[in-house]
Structure formats: structure tokens, C-alpha cells
């Protein structure tokens, strides 16, 4: 036991560093992913066929070709084209675009799940597009999309582990370094626990948001089952 504490004490500066890198990638990636998801999700409902088609192509491209391939593309191919990105930028860009594409399906699905009658009423009241989105449709869709976004956020946290592969000192990288001194069980065990705590904390925060959104609509919370099904559809 005291061995474990000694190892932890010795490794804590690096672990802390690694956790910070992972957190930065998580927040940066999630922020970008959210913007991409909302942008593409709204554009997917555009009245113009060209816009909708373009969105479909982008989304299917990012969903269809693995996050790892996309990261490698940014990391190895862009420099050949003269675009040198910092590792951070590469990581955040890849996570943001990939999970943003998945997220856009969640956003689109939630928007279209807002009952038709609600959309029609906004027309009957002559509301502008921005007005109906902001005040009527979005608040209702928001409650519906949070469970899906929650699942994607956890996946994004796990996805940040890829960063160690292009030389960032994230949690996975640090724990891999620790293996020689601390042993397999301790080093990877600690890393997994930290990842778990990050994921749990974020997931809890989004559930609080969801409960609030639902309360505002006077609705019940969805069952675990409904959420699970919706997630599987989004990530495929």
C-alpha cells in the first residue's frame, strides 16, 4: 500500500500534466464538436437541396472513415500540403470534426422530433426563422438531444487517448511511461480511474442540464432504453 502511495507521489506531477492535456483536448474538442454539430444539424434541415446534400456528404464522410484515419490525415498529410498544425490543434480539430459529425445527427434528429404541430404553430403566428428556432423549437429539441450528446461526450473523452500517438503528453502517454516504474496494473489502473472520473463528471453535468430542460417542458425523463437506441443510431 505504501509502495503504491510512493509511486503515486513520485508520478503525480506527470499524471497531473497528463490529466491537464487530456482535459484541454476534451474541452477544446467538445466545444468545436458542439459548434459543428449545431451548424450541420441546422443546415441538414435547409430548404435547399444543395445544402442538404453537401451536409450529408460531409457527415457521412466523417462518420464513415474512422477517427484514427482522420487524425493521421491531419497529422501526416496536411504538412505535405504545407499546412503545419500544432499537435493541440490537430487533436482538437480531429475530435471536433469527427464527433461534430456524429453530433449533427443527434441535433437533426432532435429538431425533427419536435412535433409538427409546434412548427406549424410558429408559422400560424408568423414567427421568423430565428425567432421560432430560438424560442420554440430549440428549447424543446435541446431536452431531446442532451442524452445523445452525453454519450458522444463520453466517447470523445475516450477518443482523446489517441493524442498520445502523435506525441502529446496526455494521460495515456503518461501512464504508458509510468509502466516501467510503477507496473502495468498501477499505471494503467490509475489512468483508467482518472478517465472514468472525467467521464462521470461530464456525464453528470449534462444530466443536470437535461433534467433542467425537461423540467422546463414539464416532461418526464426518458428511459435508459430510449437513450441507448438513439445513441447506437448516431454512432453507426
Amino acid at each position: 500500500m505504501s509502495d503504491l502511495l510512493d509511486t503515486l507521489a513520485a508520478a503525480s506531477p506527470q499524471l497531473w500534466e497528463g490529466t491537464l492535456v487530456t482535459l484541454q483536448l476534451t474541452f477544446g474538442g467538445a466545444a468545436l464538436a458542439f459548434l459543428v454539430a449545431v451548424g450541420l444539424g441546422l443546415a441538414a434541415l435547409s430548404p435547399w437541396v444543395i445544402v442538404r446534400t453537401l451536409v450529408r456528404v460531409i457527415v457521412e464522410l466523417f462518420r464513415g472513415t474512422s477517427l484514427v484515419v482522420q487524425v493521421f490525415f491531419l497529422f501526416y498529410v496536411l504538412p505535405l500540403w504545407g499546412v503545419e498544425l500544432a499537435p493541440y490543434t490537430t487533436g482538437i480539430l480531429a475530435l471536433g470534426l469527427n464527433y461534430g459529425a456524429y453530433g449533427s445527427e443527434v441535433v437533426r434528429g432532435s429538431l425533427t422530433s419536435v412535433p409538427q404541430g409546434q412548427w406549424e404553430t410558429t408559422t400560424a403566428l408568423s414567427m421568423s426563422w430565428l425567432h421560432k428556432m430560438r424560442r420554440v423549437i430549440w428549447p424543446q429539441a435541446w431536452a431531446l438531444m442532451l442524452p445523445g450528446l452525453n454519450n458522444l461526450l463520453i466517447m470523445l473523452v475516450k477518443g482523446t487517448a489517441l493524442a498520445s500517438f502523435f506525441l502529446m503528453n496526455d494521460l495515456t502517454f503518461v501512464s504508458d511511461q509510468m509502466r516501467r516504474t510503477a507496473g502495468t496494473f498501477t499505471s494503467y489502473g490509475i489512468a483508467m480511474v482518472i478517465y472514468l472520473l472525467i467521464a462521470l463528471a461530464l456525464s453528470w453535468a449534462l444530466r443536470v442540464l437535461e433534467a433542467r430542460a425537461l423540467r422546463r417542458l414539464g416532461l418526464r425523463e426518458p428511459t435508459k432504453g430510449e437513450t441507448a437506441k438513439a445513441t447506437a443510431e448516431a454512432v453507426a
Binding site: 463520453i154 482523446t160 487517448a161 495515456t172 501512464s175 494503467y188 489512468a191 472514468l196
Partner: peptide
């Protein structure tokens, strides 16, 4: 939940070296 919420790369390394 623990397995679901931790990254596959770490799990791979963990099992591989264990």
C-alpha cells in the same frame, strides 16, 4: 460502466502487458 467509460487504447495496453 467502468469498462464503457475508459478508453480502448488504455484497455488494450493494460490487457496486453498483464
Amino acid at each position: 460502466d467502468f469498462i464503457r467509460m475508459t478508453p480502448i487504447p488504455v484497455q488494450l495496453l493494460f490487457v496486453y502487458y498483464t
